[in-house]
Amino acid sequence: MPIGVIVNSLAVLLGGFLGAWLGKKIPERIRTSLPLTFGAASMAMGVAYIVKMNALPPVILALILGTAIGELIKLEKGIEWCGNRARGPIERLFSNNPNVENQKEFMEKLVGIVVLFCASGTGVFGALKEGMSGDHSVLLAKAILDFFTAGIFATALGYIVMTICVPQFIVLMALFLSASLILPISTPTMVADFTACGGMIMLATGLRISGIKSFPIASMLPALVLVMPISYLWSTYVMAVVK
């Protein structure tokens, strides 16, 4: 039973709804400062994951190739398109006008939190761990953070934040179901490099959420698919030749 996956998605749904419903009732200083705190938290979590890296070259190669693939297939543009398509009907349904008037700022924040909720290292490993062992403690802890994160961002972006629970549920459930296939064929080296790759993306996500630098977060996501095979090839063949 994917208890952690369900609770995590419900936390985003409820947090997004409450944040959008309360809206401007939450003081401006809180709505302004907390996203910066969430950005800093994302960067800190990213650094914590990066230090677990086994080898830098395969992680960098995966990031470069993954970002190139993401840009070629216009992955970020696809997320922006979906966000724009969903924004209008949701605003009409709830009669809610987000506090973010600038379209570019709206999409910057939306893409950032989509990645934060759906592709964070904590969520990925939490779903895999629950799928293999039934331990949902990681996802339950993540649900607490996601509840408040969704609530604060919803005060600015509106009810569209609560809809992120749908892709989040799909991603986490897919990982939960595939855990029995992925983890048995992975090695500690592959997992370490995968963790570091996710950490780099989380670091970039934090910089984006904080408004420091607009990294192409969504376009970087294919790196998570590539990093484990590249890590395996690197440790098996390249390092064997070097030694």
Rank of each mutant, 00 (worst) to 15 (best):
H136I: 00
V59N: 03
R92K: 15
G46L: 05
V59C: 02
T163D: 04
C165G: 02
F117D: 00
F117P: 04
M53S: 01
K109W: 07
L63A: 12
G78A: 08
I113K: 00
I50Y: 14
V114F: 12
E105R: 10
A174I: 11
I60F: 11
R85S: 07
G83M: 06
S120E: 00
G46M: 04
I60N: 03
R92H: 15
L145Y: 11
F148T: 13
G78F: 08
A119W: 12
V166S: 01
Y159L: 11
S178T: 15
F147G: 03
L116A: 15
L93A: 13
M162F: 05
R92W: 13
G46K: 02
N96S: 15
R87L: 00
A68I: 14
V124W: 09
Y159E: 04
N99L: 14
N54V: 09
V47Q: 03
I170Y: 04
N99F: 05
E76A: 11
F94L: 02
T155W: 00
F176I: 11
L145A: 13
M132K: 09
V115T: 12
F125R: 01
L93M: 12
V115P: 07
V166M: 07
F106Q: 08
G46F: 03
T163C: 06
A119S: 13
L110D: 01
L93F: 15
Q103V: 14
G88C: 10
L63W: 08
L56M: 08
M53A: 00
F176D: 13
E105H: 09
G158P: 04
P89N: 10
A143V: 01
M107D: 07
E71K: 12
S120Q: 01
N102C: 00
I73C: 14
T163E: 04
D146S: 11
F153G: 01
A156D: 15
Y159D: 09
